[in-house]
Amino acid sequence: MTVHGDADPRFDRLREVFAANLESGEELGAAIAVDLAGETLVDVWGGHADVARTRAWDRDTIVNVWSTTKEVTALAMLTLVERGLVDVDEPVATYWPEFAKNGKEDVLVRHVMSHTSGVSGWDQPFVVEDMYDREESTARLAAQAPWWEPGTASGYHAMNQGHLLGEIVRRVTGRTLTQYVAEEIAGPLGTDLQIGEKEQDDDRIAEIVPPPPLPIDFSQIDLESPMARTFMGPIADAAAANTIAWRRAELGALNGHTNARALARTFSVVSRGGEVDGVRLLSKSTIDLIFREQSRNVDLVLGVPLRFGIGFALPEPETLPYIPDERICFWGGWGGSLTVMFPDRGLTISYVMNKMAPGIIGSERSAGYVSEILAAVG
């Protein structure tokens, strides 16, 4: 199976592992990129963009990256902090007054950015299609009560974090999250990145292959728990990502469409001190906010130990041993996509794919690629 693109010779082993995964069918189509202080060390892709294997995954293929989208939304929020338009220690209601209902008046912006707000999903009844109506879905979040005491623990905001933060972006800037990311992040950086997806790009989107069912036995879970309420409000449907309705919606937690090259360049902003090729989005002090630990607990929704800063996860060796326990921030998407930033090294790693791996946090494939990359860079 041919792997296309370029990689420094140090990454020959990574290329071999990638090719083997494509050859075995473990991967259908995927891409990997590595940026080190502005130098592209890896930009490779291969496989197919569709299940029928009639379309090759090429240089400009884009794919739905699921919760890796949350990193994009977090970066958008940090640019507002940088401009003095948002303070992470202010209540959400400072910017979105209607949110101060049912015990949420003291929910802070950083609580939403770190999954500790207590609002990790929608009260039922609520289905995937309801997320597409931004106005109604955000109004429902504003009206409901938190499911645990805000700020006390993380409970992964699996599908609604983008609605919560996107509404803050809209209230502060007068622009939708989709518009803001296009005009203030993707445009200035020249990256192939969008929240949602434009009709003109339909023919270059890779088809998502859903994973096996989530390894959760809901019959053994308290239906009033944050885990059950989050995963049932709404019940996730990976196949929805292949629909036009999904692609046209603004789902700032779920439907970023991009590739590894674009993600590596975008998030090298964090790894490279806030500036990329003369475009400055963040200062050192704003980047430092990411590393203000907000929670470290067995996540109330995902059920595994996690550690969150502001906008990104921080290393938690017990759950993700392939992420070194140093000054690193990261997150990934359902099925295995991820972007990892190493500010002390100037290193950014990104991986995207269309065949979703089982599980909730990471995948064996993403773990293998990250491990090979770190072995290569030393």
Rank of each mutant, 00 (worst) to 15 (best):
G256E: 09
S114N: 04
A52Y: 00
E90K: 15
L14N: 03
L80H: 10
E197R: 07
P343R: 04
A357C: 01
G273H: 04
A240T: 02
D60L: 14
M356W: 00
N242Y: 05
F18Y: 09
E199M: 08
S271A: 15
P210G: 14
T69D: 12
E98C: 02
S225H: 14
K104I: 05
N259F: 02
L314M: 04
E82W: 09
L289E: 05
V298D: 03
H115N: 14
E224N: 15
A236Q: 15
W57A: 08
E71H: 00
R53Y: 03
G278V: 04
S271Y: 07
A186R: 06
S114P: 01
E372Q: 14
K284D: 12
V88C: 07
V34M: 10
P213S: 00
V340D: 08
W334R: 05
R140H: 12
T116S: 15
V44I: 14
D222H: 04
G332P: 04
G335D: 08
A142H: 06
T73S: 12
V370P: 06
A139M: 06
F11P: 02
V169Y: 10
W96I: 00
V119G: 09
R292L: 05
R327T: 09
A186Y: 07
E250N: 10
T73N: 05
L164Q: 13
S350G: 09
T138F: 01
P215T: 08
N354S: 13
K198M: 12
G335E: 02
A375V: 06
R292T: 14
L80E: 09
R292P: 10
E275F: 08
L14Q: 06
G303P: 14
I195V: 09
N259Q: 06
G174R: 13
G121E: 04
L141D: 07
V88S: 10
V17R: 09
G309Y: 00
V88I: 13
P324R: 03
I373S: 15
A145K: 01
L14T: 06
P343K: 14
I216F: 11
M1R: 14
A49C: 05
L300I: 11
A241P: 09
G359F: 10
A20I: 03
R272Y: 03
G309H: 11
E250S: 15
I328N: 11
Q144D: 09
